[in-house]
Design a protein around this nucleic acid. Structure first.
Lengths: 174, 174
DNA sequence: ATACTTTAATTCACTGGTGAAATATAAATT
DNA sequence: AATTTATATTTCACCAGTGAATTAAAGTAT
C-alpha cells in the first residue's frame, strides 16, 4: 500500500487535472474533503491495528469505551447505536461478542421490558485500563509539531466543519 | 442516528470523564483524533448517499475518478489498489462490476502479460461528467463560513497530520 | 537451458456491517 | 377492555472488504 504522502500527492494531481476539465469545481474544498476521507480511514486502520492484539474491532472498542466513560457504566442498545453510529443489527452482534467475552453484561430493564440494560463488567474496565495507556504515544505523535495555536485552530475548524455537515444533512431530511 | 453535534458533545463528556480517571491521557489530542474519525466516517456516509442513485459505492467511484483523472485514462489493478487503498482482491471485484457496466475496459498488457490494462470507457467519462457537478454545492457547503485563512490553515494542518501519521507507520514497520 | 524466486492478478472462504422483516412490549385511542 | 400505533431488540439474507492459497508470467541464478 502506498504511504499517505504519495497517495495525497497523486490526489492533488488528479484534482488538478479534473479541475482543468471541469472549471466550476471547488477544487480547494474538494481537496480538503478528500483529505478528511483519506486521513479518517488511515487513522481508523491504525486504530484497528492497535486493537487487534486485544481481539477487538473499532465498533466493539467504541462501545466498550462509551460504557466505560459513563458514570454508572451502563446504557441501552438503542443509545449505544446512536453514539457508536451503528445500526441496531450490528449492535446486537457487538453486544453478543462482548457478553461472550465477559466484558459487558446484558439484562432486562425493570421499567420497560422492551429495553435491555447493558453494563460494563469488571473485566471490561480492566481491559480498557490496560489497553489505553499504550495508545497515548501514538495519539501524541499524530500531533507532533502542532503548536498550541495549531491545536486550537484545528479543533475549532473540525468542529465548524461538523456544524456545517449537520446543517447540510438536516436540510436534506426536511 | 444522532446528529454529529450531539455525538460530539457526548464524546467530549466521555473523554472528559476518562481523562479524570486516567490523567496521563493526552485529552486534547484524543479529542481531535476522535473528531477525525467521526467526521471521516460521516463524510463517507454522505458521499455514499450521493453515489447511491448512480449505483456506485465509494471504492468504485474512487477507482473511476482515478482513471478519469489520468491523462491517458488508464492504469493497472496494482496501481489502482495503491491509490484507492484497496486490497487486490477487492480491486478485482470492483473492476469486474465496472467492466460489466461498461464504464471501464480491461485487457492484457502487451509488454508484461502478468499485467492487466484498465482503461476508462467513454460511458465511464460521461458518467463522471454527469455526476460531479451536482456534488459541488455540498462540497462547498461543508466549508461554509470558512475564511480564506481558515481554509489555508485547515489544509496545512491536515497535511501536517498526514506527514506525522506517515512517520509513525514507517517507524512501526522498521 | 533449467530451476528458483519474484511479481500480478484472481479465486475462495471468512468477517464486519446493513436493510427489511419478525417479535415483543409499551403507550395511545376508541 | 380491546385495538391500534409506536418503540426496542433480534433474526435473516445480503453486500463489501480481507487474508491465504492459486495460477500465470517475468526475472535471476546456476
Amino acid at each position: 500500500m502506498a504511504n499517505l504522502s504519495n497517495c495525497i500527492a497523486m490526489m492533488d494531481e488528479g484534482i488538478g487535472r479534473v479541475g482543468q476539465i471541469i472549471p466550476q469545481m471547488p477544487a480547494p474544498e474538494a481537496r480538503m474533503c478528500r483529505l478528511m476521507l483519506v486521513l479518517g480511514s488511515t487513522i481508523e486502520r491504525e486504530l484497528e491495528f492497535k486493537l487487534k492484539p486485544h481481539k477487538l474491532n473499532h465498533s466493539e472498542f467504541l462501545t466498550l469505551m462509551i460504557l466505560y466513560s459513563r458514570p454508572d457504566g451502563s446504557s441501552s442498545p438503542g443509545e449505544l447505536c446512536e453514539y457508536a453510529s451503528q445500526g441496531a443489527t450490528n449492535m446486537t452482534r457487538i453486544a453478543n461478542t462482548l457478553v461472550e467475552r465477559g466484558l459487558i453484561t446484558r439484562g432486562a430493564s425493570k421499567e420497560d421490558r422492551r429495553r435491555v440494560l447493558i453494563r460494563i463488567a469488571p473485566a471490561g474496565r480492566r481491559l480498557v485500563q490496560k489497553m489505553l495507556p499504550p495508545m497515548f504515544p501514538q495519539i501524541g505523535g499524530m500531533f507532533a509539531g502542532f503548536s498550541d495555536t495549531d491545536k486550537r485552530q484545528f479543533d475549532r475548524l473540525l468542529r465548524k466543519l461538523a456544524g456545517n455537515i449537520d446543517q447540510l444533512s438536516e436540510r436534506r431530511l426536511s
